[in-house]
């Protein structure tokens, strides 16, 4: 499903060049739940961003569903992100000016889908995370846990094949974190491939496989 070959990534700050990822080879199969772990600054979020096509590698190849992404145009990459991936971020990244229902509907806006269908799907997604009653609220009227559940609803509304979660429980207390994890597990059991960056060993144990990154390299 996802195949990274010899991926490297450098960051340039003024005169200093930092190697964030160094010759990464990784394969994630359909239906897997993979956790990426490692100390802060080791490159795990960079790896997740490259998998999700949010960032471009300096070198190496990315294959998604057997398709090699070479010189994909901006609109082709956008379409691929929309139809293949769902994202959950540590700080939720909900749009505060939009109501909960509009936030959840967002990925469907970039598909040719009638407004009524979009609305129905967004409602169904909110129902799954137990937030139907809050759909007319704005994000800043919700607790952190509720916001992350909205983010999960947004990530799954388009029924993506792959869900990428960057420390999804990082900003939540343990009880809310547990709720979010149980929802991710339910999605994985329903067939969604999940790649999650986490610092939490307990949460990582729920996944099928743990990938460890240290100084930009994979350590098994």
């Amino acid at each position: 499903m996802i195949k990274l070959s010899a991926i490297s990534k450098n960051y340039h700050t003024d005169k200093v060049q930092t190697r964030a990822l160094d010759n990464i080879n990784l394969q994630v199969d359909a239906g897997e739940f993979v956790s990426i772990m490692g100390p802060s600054g080791c490159g795990k979020s960079t790896l997740l961003n490259i998998i999700g096509l949010l960032d471009r590698p300096a070198s190496g190849q990315i294959e998604i569903n057997g398709q090699l992404l070479g010189n994909y145009s901006d609109s082709q990459v956008a379409k691929l992100r929309n139809q293949t991936f769902g994202f959950i971020f540590q700080s939720f990244h909900l749009i505060n000016e939009l109501r909960v229902i509009d936030n959840v509907e967002l990925p469907l806006l970039y598909r040719k889908m009638p407004a009524t269908e979009r609305r129905a799907k967004a409602k169904a997604a909110l129902e799954k995370v137990g937030l139907t009653a809050r759909m007319e609220h704005f994000p800043n009227q919700l607790s952190g846990g509720q916001q992350q559940r909205v983010a999960i609803a947004r990530a799954m509304v388009g029924e993506p094949q792959i869900l990428l979660a960057d420390e999804p429980t990082g900003n939540l207390d343990s009880q809310m974190g547990a709720e979010v994890m149980s929802q991710l597990l339910a999605l994985n059991q329903a067939g969604t491939t999940i790649v999650m960056v986490t610092h939490n060993e307990q949460e990582a144990k729920h996944s099928n496989r743990i990938v460890r990154v240290f100084d930009g390299q994979l350590v098994q």
């Binding site: 901006d74 379409k79 992100r81 990244h93």
Partner: peptide, 16 residues
């Protein structure tokens, strides 16, 4: 810019 990032992550093209 965060909104732009979110929209891009969920499939908005530059043109859109």
């Amino acid at each position: 810019s965060t909104e732009i990032g979110v929209r891009k992550a969920f499939g908005a093209s530059r043109q859109q």
